[in-house]
Design a protein around this nucleic acid. Structure first.
Length: 373
RNA sequence: GCGGGUGUCGCCAAGUGGUUAAGGCCUCGGAUUGUGGUUCCGAUAUUCGUGGGUUCGACCCCCAUCACCCGCC
C-alpha cells in the first residue's frame, strides 16, 4: 500500500519560461484542477456560505481546522457522523490543517516541548496537549483527504537561533507524523519551515523531499513579513520540492500573491482573506481591492466587478450590497464572500488556461499591471 | 399672559471661569494572508442658539433676544 493507490498528480502542462504548471490532482473524493485556491472553513463551514453556495463559486476542495474541530464539536462526534464529509454533507476533497499554526497564532498561553505543545483554549481557558501523534489521530478521526504535518511555525521577525529551533522540531515531528500515520487514503503533506533564512529553507525542503508524500507544503509565510521577502522565500523553496507532486503554499493569499506563487511553481493555496475581507467589507476586483462602504458606491448600480460572473455580480449592484453592509445585513457578507472566493477561483482557472495555452507569462504580466495593490 | 427648564459637530451628550471643548453613535478614509463571525486603526466642532456686557481670560457669570419643552391661568 502507498499513497499512489489513492492519490495521483498529473502535470498537464509545465511552462518553459517559468515554474508555472497546470495539473490534475486525484483524491479519494474527486479530482482537483491545479493550480487551485482552497476556501477556508475553519469550523467545518466556510463562513456565511452553504455548501451549495461554496460549490457555486467553483470550489473544488476546502480546508477545515483540526485545532478548532478538536476544541469544539470534538473529533469523536465528527468521526461518528462519518468524518468531515458526512458531518458537513460535503462530498468533495477536504484538507485539514494540523493545529500547529493555530497554536502559534491563536493561543496566548502555550509551552512548546520536544514532545509536543501544551496550550490553553483561548475561549474558555481549558488546558490541552497536542503532539505529532495526537494531531495525526485527530486528523484521522476527522477523515479529510489531505492532512498536514504537525509543525512549529516561527514568527516574523525571528532570529536564526529561533528559526533553527523551530525547524529542528518540525523535522523531528515530521518523522513522528509519518511513523504514526499509516492510513494511505489520507495524504499526509510535510511542511517546509525555516523562517526567512535561505539555508534553513533549503535544508528543510531537502529534508521533506526525502519522504514519499503525495504532496508538499511551504509553511511559515504570511506571518507579517513584507511581500518581497515572502516572494523570495517562495521562489527559492518551491523548485526544491519534488517536481511531480503538488506544492501547497499555506496561508496565501492575495490575488497578486496567487499569480506570483503560480509563477514560482505553486499548485495549491489557501487563505482566509476572501472570506474575512468579505465580512469586513472589502472585495477583490481586477483593478485591486475596493471597500464597499465607500461613499462612491452609494449610487453605483454596476456589479462589484464588470468582468466577474459570480452570483453576486450577476444579480446585484454595488449600491444594493453597500446598503446591506451598512445596515449590517448578513447577506452582504454572504454576497461578498461568494464574490471574493469566486474571484480567486476564476483567477487561478484563467491562469491555468493560460499555462495550458502557453501564454502564462504574458497573461500574468498583464494581470499584474492592472492590479493596484 | 405667568412661572420653571433646556439650548455644545447630523444625533445623544461631558464640561461649568484658565493651555489645542471628553466620550458614544452616524459619516468619511484605511487595515486584514495555514480565521477568536459584524473586528481593528485613523479623520471630522477656530467653536458651545443669537447679540451685547463683565473679566487678564467665558461654553461656564450678567443683560437682552430667539427657539423648544413642562406646568399654571
Amino acid at each position: 500500500m502507498s499513497y499512489s493507490d489513492y492519490f495521483n498528480f498529473k502535470i498537464i502542462k509545465a511552462s518553459n519560461k517559468s515554474n508555472a504548471r497546470a495539473g490534475l490532482f486525484s483524491t479519494p473524493h474527486g479530482e482537483i484542477e491545479t493550480p487551485i485556491f482552497m476556501p477556508v472553513g475553519t469550523n467545518s463551514a466556510v463562513k456565511m456560505l452553504t455548501n451549495d453556495q461554496i460549490l457555486a463559486t467553483g470550489a473544488q476542495i476546502i480546508l477545515a481546522n483540526s485545532y478548532h474541530m478538536y476544541l469544539r464539536a470534538g473529533c469523536e462526534l465528527v468521526k461518528s457522523a462519518g468524518g468531515l464529509h458526512g458531518w458537513m454533507n460535503f462530498h468533495k476533497p477536504i484538507l485539514t490543517d494540523s493545529g500547529g499554526f493555530q497554536i502559534f497564532s491563536l493561543s496566548k498561553l502555550r509551552k512548546i516541548t520536544d514532545d509536543g505543545v501544551y496550550f490553553q483554549d483561548p475561549k474558555n481557558g481549558s488546558k490541552h496537549f497536542i503532539s505529532p501523534e495526537i494531531s495525526m489521530k485527530i486528523q484521522e478521526d476527522l477523515g479529510a483527504d489531505i492532512i498536514m504535518a504537525f509543525d512549529e511555525c516561527a514568527p516574523y521577525p525571528c532570529d536564526y537561533k529561533q528559526a533553527r529551533s523551530a525547524l529542528d522540531k518540525t523535522k523531528a515531528w515530521l518523522e513522528r507524523c509519518f511513523e504514526a500515520h499509516k492510513n494511505y487514503n489520507q495524504a499526509l503533506f510535510p511542511i517546509v519551515q525555516g523562517a526567512f533564512f535561505d539555508d534553513l529553507r533549503k535544508e528543510s525542503a531537502e529534508f521533506v523531499s526525502k519522504f514519499d508524500a503525495a504532496g508538499y507544503a511551504i509553511g511559515g509565510v504570511s506571518v507579517g513579513e513584507p511581500t518581497d521577502i515572502k516572494n523570495h522565500i517562495t521562489e527559492i523553496t518551491a523548485p526544491l520540492l519534488p517536481f511531480n507532486k503538488p506544492r501547497y503554499l499555506m496561508g496565501v493569499g492575495t490575488p497578486v500573491d496567487l499569480i506570483n506563487g503560480i509563477k514560482y511553481g505553486i499548485d495549491m493555496f489557501d487563505c482566509v482573506l476572501p472570506t474575512r475581507n468579505a465580512r469586513h467589507g472589502t472585495f477583490f476586483t481586477y483593478q485591486g481591492n475596493k471597500i464597499i462602504k465607500n461613499k462612491q458606491f452609494e449610487n453605483d448600480f454596476t456589479p462589484l466587478d464588470e468582468n466577474c460572473n459570480c452570483y453576486a455580480c450577476k444579480n446585484h449592484t454595488k449600491a444594493y450590497i453597500r446598503h446591506l453592509y451598512k445596515t449590517q445585513e448578513a447577506t452582504a457578507a454572504t454576497l461578498l464572500s461568494i464574490h471574493n472566493i469566486h474571484f480567486l477561483l476564476n483567477l487561478v482557472k484563467d491562469l491555468r488556461k493560460s499555462i495550458i495555452a502557453g501564454n502564462f507569462e504574458e497573461y500574468s504580466t498583464e494581470l499584474l499591471n492592472n492590479f493596484k495593490d
